[in-house]
Nucleic acid binder design. Structure first.
Lengths: 235, 235
DNA sequence: TCGCACTACGTACGGTGTACGTAACTACGA
DNA sequence: TCGTAGTTACGTACACCGTACGTAGTGCGA
């Protein structure tokens, strides 16, 4: 009898080791690490129950003893990726602290490009997500604001980070599953865009692209957006 | 011979009607509408090539004459959902105009809850996306800013709308595929959260939730975030 | 009129998540 | 101490997915 429940269950509420029966061959960390290895190497879509089980060296259905649904595997992955943060003692300058944390998050997502895609479906509070949240709140200890306001600030910062990194990554991550190169794809897209602009139906876009400011400075765009959000809370 | 290309291609660059052969039985709008019907009724994951073909009343593989890859079907869906905007003459108050547009977008995403999930993978410039962009730029005609700055503003506004609506929707959209009710799921999640907070490991979250400000005012959260973004460009 | 590019679509392949059944194993209650 | 209940392990099977490929019919351009 496989222990899949007929009632909602948070995977983190399950004990890693049940009382009876043989001792589990793998820990949650083992499983998460295997899934993360696959996702890093071949992309999130390559993470299947079969492949993770093979990576662990066990039968496919054995995995279901540890992870009742694939969604829970994603939750393990997200938590594992969130486990690498450094939480230095808050400096007293909450803006600087949040900026540093946002940069950590951005770097993590560049290392694990599948994380932004997991942000929407995974809305749970995994252990490392809770640690992250608590630390962020600690950075705001000196700020005179209600809890709700602080949470809104944190949500906006996290939102900006996720949104912007997702955009930065989009092309690269997409091209993994395509039978042609990223450059070819880009060329086709921009070619169509240029042809559309050339129709004259979009004069403002035409004027804008005529300026040609050279390649986009992604770091600058990210930092400006981040600073704007922080400024908007810093009246 | 099915006309699937070995080279990248933007679906919008394809002519709807080829010269030779029998006239196509469906238009792109027909196909998009069928897919949208399914997604609205059963969720995005229920949109498969087979189901869309069945909804149209044709064989599965016939659909590939119109839509070379499933990704293109998503692009059609996104464009169809973006086709319902109203673009009133800009009032001269760009903040008000962008707020109105953001509210339109939010309402659209509440009607078509699958749109936020399509925002990341679909990064193309569909016809209606271009119209939307051009209109947004026209709202900023009087603003003294470079093209790049305006685009950054638009990106932030769109980002906020998508992020926030995605969060608003997450629970409801998720619960569609689950064998239990949304309320049961919520209860399990918050139950775990409470148990974690009760451990004392997260004192700031504990203190915050102890305040208990009642149910979250989603409209207010959305509007505040939107206003903050606009303010940050309005020095 | 010829030929070719197109439409239509059935079949088939390799993949997916996971329900279910069976066998081995171990900690707990008696 | 000894069942036995609950766990681990895992093979098989089902329904579904995207889509490659082949074939037949259709109608425009030459």
């Amino acid at each position: 009898m496989v222990g899949r429940p007929a009632v909602p269950e948070v995977i983190w509420a399950r004990p890693e080791r049940a009382g009876r029966g043989p001792r589990p061959a793998f820990s949650r960390a083992d499983i998460a690490a295997a899934a993360v290895r696959i996702a890093d190497a071949e992309g999130l879509d390559a993470v299947s129950m079969r492949k993770v089980a093979a990576e662990l060296g066990c039968g496919t259905m054995s995995l279901y003893n540890y992870v009742p649904r694939k969604e829970d595997l994603h939750e393990l992955m997200f938590d594992a990726a969130s486990g690498g943060y450094e939480f230095p003692e808050p400096s007293g300058d909450w803006r600087a602290d949040l900026i540093a944390l946002a940069h950590q998050a951005r770097e993590m997502m560049h290392r694990h490009t599948w994380v932004p895609r997991l942000m929407s479906p995974v809305y749970g509070f995994s252990p490392n997500a809770l640690r992250y949240l608590e630390y962020t709140l600690s950075c705001l200890d000196g700020v005179d604001a209600r809890f709700g306001e602080k949470m809104e600030l944190i949500a906006m910062v996290n939102g900006v980070v996720t949104t912007y990194v997702a955009n930065e990554i989009a092309t690269a991550e997409r091209s993994r599953s395509l039978p042609w190169s990223e450059e070819q794809e880009q060329a086709a897209r921009t070619g169509y865009l240029i042809s559309q602009i050339a129709t004259g139906k979009y004069p403002r876009m035409a004027a804008g692209f005529a300026e040609d400011p050279g390649p986009i400075d992604l770091d600058g765009v990210f930092d400006r957006a981040l600073h704007r959000v922080l400024d908007s809370f810093d009246r």
